[in-house]
Amino acid sequence: MKLSSIFKPILLSATLAIGLAGCGATNQNISATEDGKADVKAGNQEVNIYTARHYEADDAIYQKFTEETGIKVNVVKGEAEELIERLKREGESTQADLFIAVDGGVLANAKQNDILQPVTSDVINENVPENLRDVDNNWIGMATRARIIAYSKEKVSPEELSTYEDLTNEKWRNRLLVRSSTSLYNQSLLASFIELNGEEQAEQWSEGIVNNFARQPDGGDRDQAKAIAAGIGDVAIMNTYYVGLLANSEDPEEVKVAENIGVFFPNQETTGTHVNISGIGLTKHSKNKDNAIKLIEYLTSVEAQEFLSANNYEFPVNSNAQKPELLESWGEFKMQELNFDTLGEHNKKAIEIFNKTGWK
């Protein structure tokens, strides 16, 4: 992925070989000494992150924060559920100051497992609107992505599209592409329908989607877009930021895929388009609380938000941040109005519905 010129591209030059038994995560120190060796002497100003985000743009932002503040950012990357379990296991002995995840349901789960504490900061409250923060400020929104309908510009007119519910219509039989039900993105989408429409309608929707599969779910969101370009299907449910990554890929074939698909925000006349959130929480036993809050303030600043949006094609949570041209070209849209905690509350039921309706 190419990084915007807002920040100088960063090559991560140091890794910390810290054992992660049973976790499968990796440790990185984003700040390094001149000889390329991580400086982790006691007493140094630092902040430690456990993150489920694996993006070069994040690493570059952490480096810029270190350059501006002198505070080192040590990063442990892994799957969100593993990192939550690790935080629970480590308890008061944990070195983690911040936990970052890419789903509102996961953030709710972290809160329910009592591994986070409220954050108090006027700067953060000014940077991030209330609807993109936990009601108790146990986590703060960092970026959002919308789950939209991508469509073949050659075979589908946007006037044919309307709602998620309409995708169950027989006119989409053998034309719909979507990834597996094991995807957290799909689980949270269905969880939002359970919250808004009830379990019965959510199940009917899932069943209707399965009936209209162009093929059995396969691959990630980018693969659904590629399948549209290959003529396997005509419409797909996917996240907006993958369209951005395709459009700005160094692979000309991926750029061509992006050029051939359109972006449609469903349910604009009803409940709004489903949006999920990346969020960052202060761990309950943070040892570097002041530094951690400074980093949250920086990550939600206009400068960092514009960089993240320009390089990872997510929507900024700071309303003063300018979106890149591609995102601006999609226009404004109405998003679902619901408490992100409900995505976690309905996750188990969503998985049950997927299994019942044969969404593999």
Rank of each mutant, 00 (worst) to 15 (best):
residue 358 G to L: 07
residue 242 Y to W: 05
residue 241 Y to Q: 14
residue 334 K to Y: 05
residue 34 E to C: 12
residue 130 E to V: 14
residue 216 Q to M: 13
residue 267 N to S: 09
residue 248 N to F: 05
residue 185 Y to P: 01
residue 38 A to G: 10
residue 110 A to C: 10
residue 327 L to H: 08
residue 24 G to N: 15
residue 294 K to Q: 15
residue 5 S to V: 09
residue 249 S to L: 00
residue 311 N to G: 11
residue 243 V to T: 13
residue 51 T to M: 02
residue 79 E to D: 11
residue 51 T to A: 15
residue 51 T to P: 07
residue 284 K to L: 03
residue 265 F to P: 00
residue 116 L to K: 03
residue 143 A to R: 00
residue 31 S to T: 06
residue 108 A to K: 11
residue 295 L to H: 04
residue 295 L to M: 06
residue 237 I to L: 12
residue 186 N to Q: 13
residue 90 E to Y: 14
residue 152 S to Y: 03
residue 284 K to R: 14
residue 320 N to M: 12
residue 173 R to D: 14
residue 183 S to C: 05
residue 294 K to I: 07
residue 53 R to I: 11
residue 319 S to D: 11
residue 353 I to D: 02
residue 8 K to Q: 11
residue 277 I to A: 01
residue 181 S to N: 12
residue 185 Y to F: 10
residue 215 R to I: 09
residue 147 R to K: 03
residue 289 K to H: 05
residue 309 S to C: 05
residue 306 E to A: 09
residue 121 S to V: 06
residue 122 D to F: 04
residue 241 Y to K: 03
residue 83 L to E: 07
residue 269 E to C: 03
residue 277 I to C: 01
residue 254 E to Y: 01
residue 133 R to W: 07
residue 130 E to I: 15
residue 144 T to R: 06
residue 159 E to S: 12
residue 139 W to N: 04
residue 29 N to D: 15
residue 8 K to C: 09
residue 347 N to T: 14
residue 203 E to P: 12
residue 122 D to N: 12
residue 339 N to W: 02
residue 5 S to R: 13
residue 110 A to I: 14
residue 321 A to F: 01
residue 140 I to C: 09
residue 358 G to Q: 08
residue 250 E to N: 14
residue 268 Q to D: 12
residue 308 L to C: 03
residue 218 D to Y: 03
residue 189 L to G: 07
residue 354 F to V: 03
residue 173 R to N: 11
residue 255 V to Y: 04
residue 253 E to L: 08
residue 338 L to C: 04
residue 276 N to F: 06
residue 329 S to H: 08
residue 294 K to Y: 09
residue 207 E to H: 10
residue 87 L to Q: 06
residue 220 G to A: 12
residue 180 S to F: 07
residue 56 E to F: 13
residue 279 G to S: 11
residue 26 T to C: 05
residue 154 E to H: 07
residue 103 D to L: 03
residue 167 L to F: 01
residue 211 N to S: 14
residue 66 T to P: 07
residue 47 V to I: 11
residue 155 K to R: 15
residue 31 S to V: 04
residue 295 L to I: 04
residue 6 I to L: 13
residue 263 V to Y: 01
residue 245 L to V: 10
residue 244 G to M: 11
residue 100 I to D: 03
residue 256 K to R: 10
residue 154 E to P: 06
residue 319 S to R: 06
residue 52 A to S: 15
residue 312 N to F: 10
residue 215 R to Q: 09
residue 39 D to M: 08
residue 116 L to D: 02
residue 293 I to F: 02
residue 178 V to N: 03
residue 264 F to S: 15
residue 156 V to R: 01
residue 234 D to L: 00
residue 25 A to C: 15
residue 271 T to G: 10
residue 343 L to M: 06
residue 226 K to V: 08
residue 273 T to K: 00
residue 11 L to Q: 15
residue 119 V to P: 02
residue 50 Y to A: 15
residue 59 D to L: 15
residue 138 N to W: 00
residue 192 S to V: 06
residue 204 Q to R: 11
residue 15 T to P: 01
residue 333 F to A: 04
residue 142 M to H: 05
residue 231 G to E: 09
residue 290 D to G: 04
residue 186 N to K: 10
residue 72 K to M: 05
residue 206 S to Q: 01
residue 108 A to E: 00
residue 39 D to C: 08
residue 10 I to S: 09
residue 112 Q to L: 08
residue 289 K to R: 02
residue 357 T to L: 08
